[in-house]
Simulated scan of single mutants.
Amino acid sequence: MNKGGEPDLLDGYLREAPARLGRSGFEAVLRAADATCALLAGGHPALLAGPDEVAFGPDLQREYLALLAVLITGRTDHHVITLPQSDGTAGWAVAEKHLAHDPKALEELRARITARAHDGARTGRALEQWWDTE
Protein backbone atom coordinates (compact mmCIF):
# COMPACT_ATOMS: atom_id res chain seq x y z
CA MET A 1 0.00 0.00 0.00
CA ASN A 2 1.19 3.51 -0.72
CA LYS A 3 0.84 6.51 1.62
CA GLY A 4 -2.69 7.23 0.35
CA GLY A 5 -3.84 3.72 1.28
CA GLU A 6 -4.16 2.65 -2.36
CA PRO A 7 -2.52 -0.55 -3.62
CA ASP A 8 1.08 0.08 -4.64
CA LEU A 9 1.55 -0.16 -8.40
CA LEU A 10 4.36 -2.68 -8.08
CA ASP A 11 2.86 -4.88 -5.35
CA GLY A 12 1.21 -7.26 -7.81
CA TYR A 13 4.30 -7.45 -10.00
CA LEU A 14 6.61 -8.14 -7.08
CA ARG A 15 4.33 -10.92 -5.82
CA GLU A 16 3.83 -12.63 -9.20
CA ALA A 17 7.18 -12.22 -11.00
CA PRO A 18 9.26 -14.70 -8.96
CA ALA A 19 6.84 -17.50 -9.87
CA ARG A 20 7.09 -16.59 -13.59
CA LEU A 21 10.84 -16.00 -13.69
CA GLY A 22 12.32 -18.13 -10.92
CA ARG A 23 14.32 -16.55 -8.12
CA SER A 24 17.55 -15.99 -10.07
CA GLY A 25 15.71 -14.55 -13.09
CA PHE A 26 13.65 -12.25 -10.87
CA GLU A 27 16.79 -11.01 -9.10
CA ALA A 28 18.54 -10.42 -12.45
CA VAL A 29 15.62 -8.37 -13.76
CA LEU A 30 15.48 -6.30 -10.56
CA ARG A 31 19.26 -5.67 -10.59
CA ALA A 32 19.15 -4.62 -14.25
CA ALA A 33 16.15 -2.33 -13.70
CA ASP A 34 17.75 -0.81 -10.59
CA ALA A 35 20.99 -0.08 -12.45
CA THR A 36 19.09 1.44 -15.36
CA CYS A 37 16.99 3.65 -13.07
CA ALA A 38 20.16 4.86 -11.32
CA LEU A 39 21.69 5.81 -14.68
CA LEU A 40 18.54 7.59 -15.82
CA ALA A 41 18.18 9.44 -12.50
CA GLY A 42 21.76 10.64 -12.86
CA GLY A 43 21.04 12.05 -16.29
CA HIS A 44 23.01 9.34 -18.06
CA PRO A 45 21.83 7.37 -21.09
CA ALA A 46 21.05 3.77 -20.31
CA LEU A 47 21.65 0.76 -22.48
CA LEU A 48 18.99 -1.88 -22.05
CA ALA A 49 21.13 -4.82 -21.03
CA GLY A 50 21.16 -7.27 -18.19
CA PRO A 51 23.91 -8.45 -15.90
CA ASP A 52 26.70 -10.45 -17.53
CA GLU A 53 26.86 -13.11 -14.86
CA VAL A 54 23.30 -14.31 -15.47
CA ALA A 55 21.84 -15.82 -18.63
CA PHE A 56 19.76 -12.77 -19.50
CA GLY A 57 17.79 -14.37 -22.31
CA PRO A 58 14.77 -13.15 -24.24
CA ASP A 59 12.21 -13.87 -21.51
CA LEU A 60 14.17 -11.86 -18.94
CA GLN A 61 14.83 -9.07 -21.44
CA ARG A 62 11.10 -8.77 -22.15
CA GLU A 63 10.28 -8.78 -18.44
CA TYR A 64 12.95 -6.16 -17.81
CA LEU A 65 11.45 -3.87 -20.45
CA ALA A 66 7.96 -4.35 -19.02
CA LEU A 67 9.19 -3.46 -15.51
CA LEU A 68 11.03 -0.38 -16.79
CA ALA A 69 7.86 0.76 -18.57
CA VAL A 70 5.93 0.57 -15.29
CA LEU A 71 8.68 2.34 -13.35
CA ILE A 72 9.06 5.10 -15.93
CA THR A 73 5.41 5.72 -16.79
CA GLY A 74 3.85 4.89 -13.44
CA ARG A 75 1.20 2.91 -15.31
CA THR A 76 0.49 -0.72 -16.00
CA ASP A 77 -1.73 -0.29 -19.07
CA HIS A 78 1.06 -0.57 -21.65
CA HIS A 79 1.77 -3.57 -23.86
CA VAL A 80 5.12 -5.02 -24.80
CA ILE A 81 5.11 -5.84 -28.50
CA THR A 82 7.48 -8.11 -30.39
CA LEU A 83 9.83 -6.63 -32.97
CA PRO A 84 11.33 -9.38 -35.14
CA GLN A 85 15.02 -8.74 -35.79
CA SER A 86 16.85 -9.45 -39.04
CA ASP A 87 18.91 -12.17 -37.32
CA GLY A 88 15.76 -14.06 -36.28
CA THR A 89 15.82 -13.02 -32.64
CA ALA A 90 13.05 -11.02 -31.01
CA GLY A 91 13.25 -7.45 -29.81
CA TRP A 92 10.55 -5.55 -28.00
CA ALA A 93 9.00 -2.14 -27.68
CA VAL A 94 6.47 -0.72 -25.25
CA ALA A 95 3.24 0.43 -26.91
CA GLU A 96 0.22 2.31 -25.66
CA LYS A 97 -2.82 0.17 -24.90
CA HIS A 98 -4.86 1.38 -27.89
CA LEU A 99 -2.17 0.19 -30.34
CA ALA A 100 -2.32 -3.38 -29.10
CA HIS A 101 -5.76 -3.79 -30.66
CA ASP A 102 -5.07 -1.95 -33.93
CA PRO A 103 -3.08 -4.28 -36.22
CA LYS A 104 -2.47 -1.59 -38.85
CA ALA A 105 -1.18 0.98 -36.33
CA LEU A 106 0.91 -1.71 -34.65
CA GLU A 107 2.52 -2.72 -37.94
CA GLU A 108 3.24 0.94 -38.78
CA LEU A 109 4.88 1.37 -35.35
CA ARG A 110 6.98 -1.75 -35.89
CA ALA A 111 8.06 -0.46 -39.32
CA ARG A 112 9.05 2.96 -37.90
CA ILE A 113 11.02 1.45 -35.02
CA THR A 114 12.76 -1.02 -37.32
CA ALA A 115 13.64 1.72 -39.83
CA ARG A 116 15.02 3.92 -37.04
CA ALA A 117 17.12 1.01 -35.73
CA HIS A 118 18.51 0.31 -39.22
CA ASP A 119 19.33 4.01 -39.70
CA GLY A 120 21.07 4.08 -36.33
CA ALA A 121 23.08 0.99 -37.20
CA ARG A 122 24.12 2.50 -40.56
CA THR A 123 25.18 5.70 -38.83
CA GLY A 124 27.13 3.70 -36.25
CA ARG A 125 28.95 1.74 -38.94
CA ALA A 126 29.78 4.96 -40.83
CA LEU A 127 31.15 6.56 -37.67
CA GLU A 128 33.24 3.48 -36.91
CA GLN A 129 34.69 3.55 -40.43
CA TRP A 130 35.45 7.25 -40.12
CA TRP A 131 37.04 6.71 -36.72
CA ASP A 132 39.19 3.85 -38.05
CA THR A 133 40.52 6.01 -40.91
CA GLU A 134 41.55 8.87 -38.64
Rank of each mutant, 00 (worst) to 15 (best):
G42V: 05
V94K: 13
C37S: 04
W92K: 12
D8T: 03
L30T: 01
A66F: 09
T36R: 00
A46K: 12
A46V: 10
Q85V: 05
E16S: 15
A105Q: 13
I81D: 12
T73C: 11
A100D: 06
D34Y: 06
A69T: 14
R62S: 07
G22M: 13
W92D: 07
R125I: 11
A32H: 02
L40H: 13
I81G: 09
E6S: 05
V94N: 06
G5Q: 08
W130V: 11
R125P: 04
G74W: 05
M1T: 15
A35P: 02
G5P: 08
D87S: 04
L10P: 11
L48E: 10
T82Q: 15
D52G: 05
R110K: 12
H44R: 14
G22N: 03
A121H: 09
R125N: 11
L83V: 11
G124V: 12
L14R: 06
D119K: 15
H101I: 10
E16F: 12
G25T: 07
A117E: 06
E6D: 04
M1W: 13
G42I: 07
E27K: 02
Q85A: 06
A19I: 02
P103F: 08
H98R: 10
T36A: 12
L14H: 09
A55G: 13
V70Q: 13
A46R: 07
R62G: 02
E6I: 13
T36Q: 01
G25C: 02
G120K: 07
